[in-house]
Amino acid sequence: MRVALAEDGALFREGLLMLLRAAGHQVVCSAAGGDELVALLATAPADVAILDIRMPPEPDGGLITAERLRAAHPDLGLLFLSHYAESHYLMRILEIGTESIGYRLKEKVGSVEVLTDTLNRIGNGEIVIEPVLAKRLVERTRGDKKDVVSALSDREQEVLRLMAEGRSNNGIAGQLYITPKAVEKHVANIFVKLGLHTDTAAHHRRVLAVLTYLRSQRNES
């Protein structure tokens, strides 16, 4: 895969460069800031851009850069890396786009397999959400929703967590060593129990429905 990279921490940037190359990806350009990356990408086409959220232009240059890149190269996948997995940033990221987009913790992409899986899923148009954050969202549901989520079977809770990570039915099947048909059944059950009515066939709409359910709370302004 052709990858572009912007990260202001030299140590992390160099490490990621080496890991990307070891994984067989082609790094078409790398930069210490967003503006530089936008300029480089004008002449060097890439499949996915990896962006640090907290980099120049300050304070959250990764987000501003992503907006510019989405406008200039609509097919370019975007992977945000951050030291923090915050639902606040997840929502801002999903405002930039709901296809071919991902958000992961910096220390969680440190293996060839995970890095390649993340990039491939983004390349395939999926939303990729840091599992640490997806798990937290599932565990932090409150009030009526907490009761609903805890009434799901253990397997259904696992499937819900993987849906919140943005995984497709095939992806979930691969993670849980069950058939896609079985996943479909679990997903349908979960949607009935949560009272969600959405077109589960459209991947990004399903992820958004699940995230909105997990994040919304009574009383929220």
Partner: peptide, 11 residues
């Protein structure tokens, strides 16, 4: 940042 970079080197 140093520790995050270390996870990449371990990878």
């Amino acid at each position: 940042l140093r520790i995050s970079a270390l996870t990449l080197r371990l990878g």
